Amino acid sequence: MTIDVVVADDQELVRSGFAMILGAQPDITVVAEAGDGVQAVEAVRLHRPDVLLLDIRMPRMDGIEAARVVCAETGTRVLMLTTFDQDDYVYDALYAGASGFLLKDVRRDDLVHAVRVVAAGDSLLAPAVTRRLIDDMVRRRLRQNPAPTGLDGLTQRERETLVLLGRGLSNAEVAAEMLVSEHTVKTHVSNVLMKLGLRDRVQAVIAAYESGLIQPGGR
């Protein structure tokens, strides 16, 4: 099965470079390129790709708003491109529905792997950059406006699952920690997302931090 991708970045060399790398894969087709946020949204509406590779800083419509529109209107998964030391809006992008982040100097193999992971319906939580970004953004947000827990509807096992998700563990790792099957873990994860009204595992990580189950900088 081929993964259809739209690559959106206002820097032509970056955009064409990513498109060339992805287009060279036998299971990935770059169906369109976009040079700004408006073009990115239009390309997604036209082609309905599996993944939108989207720069967080874009002209006309920034990456956050573009991600919000795409995630609200379509089933396309959004993978954001960022420069960790400069971007202050990653937290908002997560809330907009982004499924993960890549640094712009990402290695070729990691780029291809990330697109495949996100296209499969998973979130890109494993790379250290995503954990660091979430940790930093949540710390800032909690200083400004501490959030209520909102976890009363979860069972004890679902709360445990949320904590482990917040630590970035995969389903297999969660199963090993809880001494249950992966099928049981998938059920717990689905229940957590449904009860808390979350889009995916990335937003579950945010919820784990905001609820106080995990402290920024801790485990």
Rank of each mutant, 00 (worst) to 15 (best):
P49V: 03
A66Y: 03
L22P: 04
M137N: 12
A128H: 13
D200S: 09
I214F: 04
A40I: 06
D109F: 03
V7F: 11
D4G: 12
R108A: 11
A32H: 06
S211V: 06
M20H: 12
P146M: 11
M20I: 09
K186E: 12
A176H: 13
Y89H: 14
D135C: 11
L169D: 05
A114M: 06
V7Y: 11
T83I: 14
A66N: 00
R107C: 10
D92A: 13
Q203R: 07
D87P: 00
Y89T: 12
H113D: 15
V69E: 13
A8G: 02
M194Y: 05
E65F: 04
L169T: 03
R159I: 08
E160D: 15
V70Y: 06
A24N: 11
G35A: 13
G197T: 06
H183W: 08
D135I: 07
R139L: 14
V117P: 04
G212C: 09
R60A: 08
V38H: 08
V185K: 01
M178N: 04
D55S: 07
S211T: 06
L111R: 08
V129M: 15
D27I: 00
T83L: 11
K104E: 01
Q144H: 13
T82H: 09
A72F: 11
V205G: 01
K186C: 10
Y95S: 05
D152A: 11
D9G: 06
P146H: 11
V115S: 03
R143K: 15
H188P: 01
L142Q: 15
L213H: 04
F18E: 10
V118Y: 02
V30A: 08
R77I: 05
A66P: 01
G121Y: 10
R132G: 10
M1T: 13
Y95A: 07
E65M: 10
V6N: 03
A72Y: 10
T2I: 13
A43G: 02
V163D: 02
R199V: 08
M137C: 12
R15C: 10
V106S: 12
S99C: 11
A114W: 05
